[in-house]
Amino acid sequence: MADQDNPQPPAALAYEDTGAAAALVYFDIVGAYGIMNGTVEIELATRILVPTANGLTDVKFLSSGRLRCSPTAAANLRNAIDAALKMLEAPQPQPDPVAASRMN
Rank of each mutant, 00 (worst) to 15 (best):
G31Q: 12
S70F: 09
T57D: 00
G55N: 10
G65F: 02
V50I: 13
A53L: 08
L49G: 04
V40T: 05
L24D: 13
A90T: 07
V59I: 15
V40L: 08
Y15V: 15
R66D: 04
M36I: 10
A32W: 10
L49H: 14
T52K: 13
K86F: 08
N37E: 15
A83M: 06
M87P: 00
M36D: 11
A73M: 09
A53T: 11
L13W: 04
E41D: 08
T46N: 05
A14S: 12
F27S: 10
S63R: 15
Y33Q: 14
N37T: 07
R78L: 11
P93E: 04
P91L: 03
D58S: 11
N54P: 04
E43P: 01
P95T: 05
R47E: 15
R68M: 14
N37Q: 14
E16C: 04
A83P: 01
T39R: 13
A20N: 04
D28N: 11
A32L: 01
T18I: 10
C69P: 01
V40C: 09
N54T: 13
L88D: 05
L56E: 15
L24G: 09
A21R: 13
T72C: 02
T52V: 10
N76Y: 09
A12E: 14
L44A: 05
Y33R: 12
K60G: 01
F61W: 07
A20I: 11
L77A: 12
L13K: 08
N76D: 13
Q92T: 06
Q92W: 02
S70H: 08
Y33C: 10
I42T: 07
D58T: 08
I81F: 09
A14Q: 14
A80C: 07
P93N: 06
E16R: 15
I29S: 09
E41V: 14
T18C: 05
R68G: 06
D82W: 00
T18E: 11
P95Y: 01
A84Y: 04
Q94E: 09
L62Y: 03
V40F: 05
E43Q: 09
L77G: 02
S70R: 12
V50H: 07
I35F: 07
A83Y: 11
S64W: 09
L88K: 12
A73L: 11
P71I: 00
D28G: 03
A80S: 11
G31S: 06
T46V: 05
A22T: 12
I42Q: 01
A53D: 15
T72N: 15
L67F: 12
V30R: 06
A21F: 06
P71S: 07
F27I: 00
T57A: 10
A74G: 08
A20C: 05
P51S: 07
V50K: 13
P71R: 12
L62K: 15
E43G: 03
D17F: 09
L67T: 04
P71G: 07
G34D: 00
D17L: 10
Q94K: 06
A74F: 08
A74N: 01
R78Q: 11
A12L: 09
R47S: 08
